[in-house]
Each structure stands twice: as C-alpha cells, then as structure tokens.
C-alpha cells in the first residue's frame, strides 16, 4: 500500500493526542509512516505509541538544532522526494500549519489546510466556523494536509513500526530559538478539546462575576470560554475567546451565559452538538440556534443549575 507521511506531534517525550488522530486519518488513504523530528532518543521513546496506532514505519530525524521549524520542513521535503508519498499529514496547530505551508511551497504540492476529514479522493473543510461544508481535492501529487484537532476519532491498530534513521538536511536561513516556555495548563480542559464548554458574554457584567461561569464549568468538568464582547470589555483573557477572531469549538455541550450570539461568536461555536443559552433578552440571536433557551437572569439560573448538578454528583 502507498506510503503516507505523518509528522509526529510530540511534547516532553510523549506523543500528543493529535498524532494518534493523524495516524488514524492516514490509514484511510494509505500506510502511515511516522516522521519524528527531535533530539536524539526521541523516536525510541515515542515508538510504542506510534506502533499501537498503525505506524508501519518510523523515520527518526535526530537533531539538536535550535533552528525554528525549518528542520521539520527540510526532513519532510527530502522524504517526499525519496518515497513519493500519497499525502503528508500534519496537525493544524500553529506550528503544523506553518510547516505544512512551507513544505507545500518547496515541493509544489497542494496545501489542503485545516481539514476535518480525509479520504482517498480529498478532504472535507468546515468553512466560516461551520457555516459551510466544502470538499476539496489536490491537483498535484503528495498533497500536504493539515488536520484540525479533535475532528477524527482515534482508533488503535497494530503497525510494524520499523525504525529508520534519516538525515536532517541543512535548511538555509532560519530563525533561531532562544528560549521556550510551554504554556502551563490550568486544571480545566483545553478549550478546543473539551467536551463541555461554559461561556460567558457581556451579560456577565464584570471580571469578578466570571466566577459564576467558572463555577458552573468546574462542576461540569468543562472548559471556560468567553465572547468577544466579554474579552474586549476586559472580563476574561483573550486566549479563551470563542468566535471568528478566537477559537472554534465543537463540544458535545455548549452553555452560553449572557451571550447575545452575534455572528462573530456563532462562527466559533455553532457546530456544537447541544447548545443551551441563558439570556435576559428573549430576542437574542443565540436562541435561534439553542436547543434549549432560558429567558432569564444568568445570576439566578446558573447558580441553581450548578447546585442541581452538584447534588446529582453527590
């Protein structure tokens, strides 16, 4: 079967969840070969997980280079030339998108960015925050595909995972990394990966009152989100913004508190499976897409809901 290159996403010597999603998606188009770029010994540590998710080969490109992302691009570029894969799969993270774009420029490949599904004939995109579904295909060999995190259900499969060492070619001019500080995740799940999101809008009224949103989120094991209006008003930090100029989320359950539901916001959450909205204004557009809408005061409804859930858990 034809080879598919998968760039392994790893942190602190462990495969990220996105790596397993990529391997699962890769199996629908060919035989996955995992490409590991990192310091010596990285590939050996990741191999077991990669084999358990169907990696037929593991290419280990070991380097201590402080060059920023260009080693990954150069390794993939030389592998594309060497093995002529049917596709290259990379996660649609900030780094992944950049690596993919640069690779596509170098290999003259189609760039199919931010796909939500992959098939032998092409990919599916979710456009404008899920307002459109589009199918796209490559007009070149070895398309470079980035896959949106959380869009593929991980399935295990045994792979031979034979290790092969590959060289890291020199990559020309590059930025150099001086230091790295990985983000320190809080106790709450990551916003884009959470299965439940509780979000607050302008109706929350102040930064202090966001405690109401957080309280409900914590009893549900949910991530906290905020609308642009709330972020612009300084109630909550920007990295939690859901919407067109923030994160796109698609959880099982989305609870919107005091959010009017401007298109800006809906574009980031309208593909959520179940949407519950609490808003004082019965005309708020959020109610047009809510499975359950409560016209009322969030300061009364949310604490009561929190208490009910806590009671059920006890």
């Amino acid at each position: 079967m034809a080879e598919v290159l998968v760039l392994v996403d790893h942190l602190d010597g462990e495969n990220k969840k996105s790596t397993y999603e990529l391997l699962t998606a890769a199996r629908t188009v060919g035989e996955p070969s995992a490409v590991v770029v990192g310091p010596a010994g990285t590939a050996a540590g990741l191999a077991e997980g990669l084999r358990a998710h169907g990696a037929a080969k593991i290419y280990a490109a070991e380097t201590d280079s402080a060059e920023f992302l260009t080693p990954q691009v150069s390794v993939l570029e030389s592998l594309v030339e060497q093995v002529d894969p049917v596709a290259v799969l990379i996660s649609a993270s900030a780094d992944g998108k950049e690596i993919a774009g640069r690779l596509a420029v170098r290999t003259g490949s189609a760039l199919l960015a931010d796909a939500v599904a992959v098939s032998p004939t092409g990919v599916t995109h979710s456009v404008f925050g899920g307002a459109y579904i589009a199918e796209a295909k490559a007009n070149t060999g070895h398309p470079v595909i980035t896959l949106r995190a959380g869009s593929v259900e991980i399935e295990q499969a045994e792979g031979a995972g034979a290790e092969e060492t590959v060289a890291v070619p020199a990559s020309g001019r590059s930025a150099t990394v001086i230091s790295r500080e990985p983000i320190v995740g809080g106790d709450r799940p990551e916003l884009t990966e959470a299965s439940v999101v509780v979000a607050g809008g302008r109706g929350v009224g102040s930064a202090d009152d966001f405690a109401i949103v957080e309280g409900l989120a914590d009893v549900l094991g949910a991530a906290v989100g905020a609308s642009r209006a709330a972020v612009d008003s300084g109630y909550y930090p920007h990295q939690f913004q859901v919407g067109q100029t923030g994160k796109t989320v698609s959880p099982q359950l989305y609870i919107a508190l005091g959010i009017s539901g401007a298109i800006q916001h809906r574009a980031g959450m309208q593909t959520s499976k179940t949407i519950i909205a609490v808003n004082k204004d019965s005309e708020a557009p959020i109610f047009e897409i809510a499975d359950l809408g409560v016209v009322g005061d969030l300061f009364k409804v949310a604490p009561q809901l929190q208490e009910e859930i806590a009671k059920r858990k006890a």
Binding site: A94, D95, T176, I178, S179, R180, E181, I183, Q239
Partner: peptide, 11 residues
C-alpha cells in the same frame, strides 16, 4: 501560540 511562548531571533 496556544502551545506557549518561544523567543526567536534572526538576521
């Protein structure tokens, strides 16, 4: 980015 802060330099 979502993954953290990296300091970079280039000519």
């Amino acid at each position: 980015t979502d993954d953290g802060v990296t300091e970079l330099t280039a000519e």
